[in-house]
């Protein structure tokens, strides 16, 4: 790792001001992606601004049917939250399959979403739940937030402070994890929301996380795994890499979607 300067932010304002006075800084939360990336010298930020001690970014709130998860909430906290287990078990279950127990104790939902790894789990949930990404500057609908592989709508000094969504009627996430890394080779989050059925696909898209509108229409008409059978998953829009080619992934997307619908019940 190249050298860097570590700063601990006490508040969102403090973090923004530290970002403003740095050369080429990055925000870090759990660091479970950023630190390995820095160790490989694929990233070399001049400064790291640690957000883990910003109290306003912590905590999970379930207020009626409105769920808000602070950006600094760890995967372990999402997984073990009793409130989420009751109000939205699908996202609690999703969090329990990210990385491993030790990674889940450090990694945060905000960090995962801001990084927008094309194989990360949370972005599929955000899209399918029609979540709102709340930053220190604005609120962004998930559909407009994820703009491509490792790309988001976030500005340089913009920090995700929380995510918010309405409790889905039914929802579930199914992923086919890479046997070594446990990142999704294909992961599908299906949700029946107040605004209709939404299907978020991660791990497979050549441009990262995306919706599958044809499946959404099929499931709106008939919420059963069989309804997906005739949907077309276009392999030309999917990733090919050493773990599996695009045709393989196209099949996986369909299988994961079917499993998710079955799990959602």
């Amino acid at each position: 790792m190249y050298n860097t300067n570590y700063h601990r932010a006490s508040s969102v304002e403090d973090a923004v001001s530290k970002m403003g006075s740095s050369d080429d800084a990055k925000f870090v939360s759990g660091g479970q992606t950023l630190i390995p990336t820095m160790k490989q010298r694929l990233a070399a930020p001049s400064d790291l601004i640690d957000l883990r001690h910003v109290d306003s970014m912590k905590g999970i709130t379930v207020d009626g049917n409105q769920i808000t998860i602070g950006a600094g909430v760890t995967h372990a906290e999402v997984h073990s939250s009793k409130e989420l287990g009751a109000a939205c078990p699908s996202i609690a279950a999703l969090a329990g399959h990210i990385g491993d127990p030790h990674v889940r104790n450090m990694g945060t939902i905000g960090g995962s979403i801001a990084n927008n790894d094309p194989a990360a789990d949370y972005p599929a949930a955000m899209i399918a739940l029609n979540a709102t990404i709340i930053t220190n500057k604005r609120e962004i609908a998930a559909d407009g937030f994820f703009t491509g592989m490792f790309e988001t709508a976030l500005g340089e000094d913009e920090i995700i402070t929380a995510v918010s969504f309405i409790t889905p009627v039914k929802a579930a996430y199914s992923k086919f994890p890479n046997p070594a890394s446990r990142y999704a080779m294909a992961g599908v989050f299906v949700a029946q929301t107040g605004e209709g059925v939404r299907v978020g696909v991660t791990g497979a898209g050549a441009d990262g996380v995306h919706r599958h509108t044809e499946m959404e229409a099929a499931l709106t008409a008939n919420w059963t795994p069989e309804a997906i059978a005739n949907c077309n998953v276009d392999a030309n829009e999917l990733l090919s890499d050493l773990h599996g080619d695009n045709n393989y992934r196209a099949n996986l997307v369909k299988v994961m979607a079917k499993r998710a619908v079955e799990m959602a019940g």
Binding site: Y6, R8, G31, Q32, I35, P36, L48, D50, R52, P101, H102, V103, N105, M106
Partner: peptide
């Protein structure tokens, strides 16, 4: 439990 190879001492 955390992975000490993926945590900065400063953290």
């Amino acid at each position: 439990a955390v992975k000490a190879c993926t945590t900065l001492a400063a953290q």
